[in-house]
Computed example of a mutant assay.
Amino acid sequence: MNIQTAYHGNITVNDEELLSFIKGIPGFHDENEFALLPLEGNEWFQVLQSTSTPDLAFITTNPFLFFPEYDFELDGASLDQLGNPTTEDIQVLSILTVKDPFKESTANLQAPIIINTVKKSGKQVILTDTNYRTQHQILAQPAGKKG
């Protein structure tokens, strides 16, 4: 499938790699199909690109790279919607808010993207009753440093 993207221009993506978001993403309920694309020269960040809206693309990352203690449980309804994946079949992503300078960029830990890597289905889960917020600085400044 050929798609127009926000960061890669016009590209061809393999249909088998497309991700289905049955209920869309909060705020984008009509967007049901995305491609997870690499950012060239960077293995830590990816682009979650809508296949139908070229300007709709989210920079994402594996939150455990920056927050090793990140932990949450998925509710039964979310697991059902994702096709009841095993732990090994789940990929967790956080949507980033990229800022200038980059060291000010933040990750949304309150609403992770959960992907069933086997069924190629995805869902953004909004965690409740948690201390996680929508803006956690990914490049935290070491203690005692002034910037």
Rank of each mutant, 00 (worst) to 15 (best):
P38V: 09
N131I: 05
S105E: 08
I126T: 14
P112T: 05
R133N: 09
V125H: 03
P112G: 05
L56E: 06
P54L: 01
L109A: 03
L65N: 14
F58W: 12
Q110I: 15
T106W: 12
D89T: 09
T53F: 02
N42F: 06
K123W: 01
F67K: 07
V118C: 02
E40W: 00
E73A: 13
K120Q: 15
F58A: 00
E43I: 12
Y70D: 00
E69N: 14
K103R: 14
T130E: 05
T97Q: 10
S78C: 08
G83S: 08
F67A: 09
D129V: 00
K123A: 11
I115Q: 06
V125S: 03
S105M: 08
F66R: 14
N84Q: 13
T128K: 13
I59F: 08
K120P: 06
K120W: 05
D75W: 05
Y132T: 00
T130Q: 03
P101M: 10
T117L: 09
L65R: 14
S121M: 13
P54C: 09
P101E: 08
L93G: 07
S105F: 08
L93R: 15
D75V: 03
I95W: 13
F66S: 13
L127E: 08
T106V: 14
T128H: 12
F58E: 00
Q81K: 06
P63E: 10
P68M: 07
L79D: 01
E88A: 15
F58Q: 01
G41K: 11
D89N: 15
T117N: 12
I95N: 02
L39Q: 03
S121C: 07
L109G: 04
F67E: 02
S78G: 06
K99L: 14
D89M: 04
T51K: 05
N108A: 03
F72G: 02
I114F: 08
F72I: 01
P54I: 01
Q81G: 07
P63D: 04
L56V: 05
E69F: 11
F102M: 14
V118W: 02
S121Q: 14
T117V: 10
Q81A: 15
N131E: 15
L109D: 03
E73T: 13
Y132G: 03
N116V: 10
D75H: 11
N42E: 08
Q46F: 15
L65F: 11
S78Q: 02
Q91A: 15
T130W: 07
T117E: 02
W44M: 15
E88H: 12
G41T: 01
L39P: 02
N62M: 08
R133S: 14
P63V: 09
I115M: 08
P54V: 02
A111C: 04
T61I: 12
P54D: 04
N42A: 10
T117H: 07
K120A: 10
Q46A: 08
A57W: 02
A107H: 05
I114N: 04
F64D: 00
F64V: 03
T51W: 01
D80F: 03
T97V: 13
N62C: 10
S94Q: 09
A107S: 12
N42K: 09
D80G: 01
V92Y: 10
Q46M: 12
S105L: 11
D100M: 11
F102A: 13
P85G: 04
I114C: 07
L74V: 07
F64M: 07
F102I: 14
D71R: 10
F64Q: 02
G41Y: 07
V118N: 10
T53R: 11
